[in-house]
Amino acid sequence: MARQGAPAPVAGEFPIDTGTCELEPDPYSTNGWVLRVNGVPSSHIDLDDPLRLDFEYMRWIAALVDARWGPSDRLRVLHLGGGACSLPRYIAAAHPAARQVVVELDGKLAELVRQWFDLPRAPLVRIRVGEAREVTRSLSEASRDLIIRDVFAGSRTPHPLTTVEFTQEAKKVLAADGIYLVNCGDSPDLKMARREAATIASVFENTAIVADPAMLKGRRYGNVIIAGSDGPLGEGPGLARGLLGGGVPAHLWQDDQVRRFASGAQPLTD
């Protein structure tokens, strides 16, 4: 439930630093809200249930996280891209010992999200206003266990956040067996997903991909979750079964499949 005394969300369009955002009620949920940023669906929030993730790609990210860390683990998380902080709310509820920092470029949007939604306070969830690459570069080595990159300008991730050089910067911030997770939005040709997979595979020992079968067969625009780690990643039959049994069934590709998928694609560079 929303905190007592916190301002209730109100449907409407609001000016933010990078344009406008629109908040609209979810017609299928008593206390759910959809956030659009410059006309693009960005986030869904259920104020009554932080464990509810309506966007399938967020459920895939959550499944990868839950397969690696338990509720009592003191998980250190860096979110690059905030939106309505759906994933930080989820992780705070599923992993209450976690400490999270959310990097959001748009200061006004961050202010509105804090005002509207029941976000755990610092040190559980801190919102840091800034550019994702600059903030990542400023962090101490081995200071995070998990980095989630979910940054979009329109339908694409800004190029500086996709390159080998940035991926190496992110790896420095991760613990030795930490996980780097990216949300890649791509068209049916999967050109960007292949290049992002090649980029991450060039930096990390182990990779994984989660996406729905239609996306992986090049039949539609959608999301591909790509993961990199020098430690174990996506192991165990339970994760693959769970992904297949979701509302939108998804396939889990392990390292060999990811590298075959990326074969011939050039890693992205600055």
Rank of each mutant, 00 (worst) to 15 (best):
G5Q: 06
A6L: 10
A6G: 05
P7M: 07
P7G: 07
A8P: 04
V10L: 12
V10R: 12
V10P: 06
V10Y: 07
A11F: 12
G12A: 12
G12S: 12
G12K: 11
D17F: 01
T18A: 09
T20E: 08
E22M: 10
E24Q: 13
E24L: 10
P25R: 03
D26G: 06
P27F: 08
L35P: 09
L35A: 01
N38P: 13
N38I: 06
N38L: 03
H44C: 08
H44N: 13
H44I: 09
I45R: 02
D46R: 06
D48L: 10
D48R: 05
D48M: 13
R52N: 13
L53Q: 01
L53P: 00
W60L: 01
A62M: 04
L64K: 01
D66G: 10
A67Q: 14
R68S: 14
S72C: 07
D73F: 14
R74L: 06
L75C: 10
R76D: 05
R76G: 04
H79F: 15
G81D: 03
A84C: 10
C85E: 09
P88D: 06
Y90E: 01
Y90K: 02
A92L: 09
A92N: 07
R99F: 03
V101A: 04
V102H: 02
V103L: 08
V103K: 00
D106Q: 11
G107V: 14
G107K: 05
L109G: 02
A110N: 08
A110E: 08
E111P: 08
Q115C: 14
D118H: 14
P120I: 02
R121A: 15
R126S: 15
G130M: 10
A132F: 02
A132M: 04
R133S: 09
R133C: 03
E134G: 14
T136C: 12
R137E: 15
R137P: 07
S143W: 14
D145Y: 08
D145W: 06
G154L: 11
P158K: 12
L161Q: 07
L161R: 06
T163Y: 08
T163R: 09
E165D: 11
F166S: 01
T167Q: 00
E169G: 04
A170I: 12
A170L: 02
K171T: 04
V173C: 03
A175K: 13
A176N: 03
D177R: 15
G178W: 00
I179E: 01
V182G: 00
N183V: 11
C184P: 02
C184I: 15
L190Q: 03
K191M: 09
M192W: 12
M192V: 13
M192A: 10
E196Q: 14
A201C: 09
S202T: 05
F204N: 04
T207W: 05
T207P: 02
A211W: 03
A214E: 15
L216Q: 05
G222Y: 14
G222Q: 10
A227Y: 03
A227N: 07
G228C: 13
D230Y: 02
D230C: 03
P232Y: 05
L233C: 10
G234Y: 00
L239G: 00
A240R: 13
L243A: 06
G245F: 02
G246M: 15
G247H: 11
P249L: 10
H251G: 05
H251Q: 15
Q254G: 15
D255A: 01
D255S: 09
D256F: 01
Q257R: 15
V258K: 03
V258I: 13
F261R: 05
A265G: 11
A265L: 13
A265Y: 02
L268D: 09
